[in-house]
């Protein structure tokens, strides 16, 4: 109470310097500040220190987490890069396989087409030969029919009485000479 009274009794209008406080104020203020700082150091310091430690730990943990995340990200990136490499190699392999299969299909198709063409040509040649044979047979048959029809007519027309008599004489002579 006395301090307060003392402070209150001071005349604010009387100062020694327009900027610096009075020496007692400095002293009292310094002591008070020291007391406050000491109190703060004594009572709030541990918690502040603990807070700083916790914060440091938290930051360190975050740093570690970030490093871990970075490591994981790098692993993922490596995996992705590896996967991309695998994809590229798989793509290349698939393209090669596709090319190989396409080439095989093409070769097989060519071979099949060539075989089919050869088969068709053989069949066509056989058909042509058969048709030629049939035509020749039909022609021979028609000629034979025409000849068999025409021959008696021609022979009969050419058989004069004299020729018939000659044939009779020839028969008699032939039979008589048989034995």
């Amino acid at each position: 109470m006395r301090w307060i009274t003392l402070l209150a009794s001071e005349d604010p209008t009387v100062t020694h310097h327009w900027l610096l406080p009075e020496t007692p104020e400095i002293i009292y203020g310094g002591l008070a500040s020291l007391i406050v700082v000491s109190a703060l150091v004594k009572f709030a310091g541990p918690s502040i220190k603990k807070g700083f430690v916790g914060r440091t730990e938290r930051i360190q943990k975050e740093i570690d987490d970030a490093a871990s995340a970075k490591s994981r990200a790098e692993d993922d990136a490596r995996g992705i890069r590896s996967a991309l490499g695998d994809v590229a190699s798989e793509r290349a392999r698939m393209l090669q396989e596709a090319d190989r299969q396409a080439e095989a299909l093409l070769a097989e198709g060519r071979a099949r087409i060539a075989a089919e063409v050869a088969d068709l040509e053989a069949k066509a040649e056989a058909d042509i030969a058969a048709a030629r044979g049939r035509s020749a047979d039909e022609l021979r048959s028609q000629i034979a029919v025409l000849a068999s029809r025409a021959t008696p007519i021609v022979v009969e027309a050419s058989l004069t009485d004299a020729a018939r008599k000659d044939l009779v004489e020839s028969f008699i002579s032939g039979v008589g000479a048989a034995r």
Binding site: P152, V155, E156, L159, A163, R164, L167, V168, S170, F171, I172, S173, V175, G176, A178, R179
Partner: peptide, 27 residues
């Protein structure tokens, strides 16, 4: 003809002649 046939067959033949235009010629 009868003589020729008899000679050829070794038999005495009784000749029976049929005029048949379908034979065209000969016997």
């Amino acid at each position: 003809l009868a003589a020729a046939l008899s000679k050829a067959t070794g038999k005495t033949v009784d000749l029976k002649v049929v005029v048949d235009p379908s034979v065209l010629g000969g016997l």
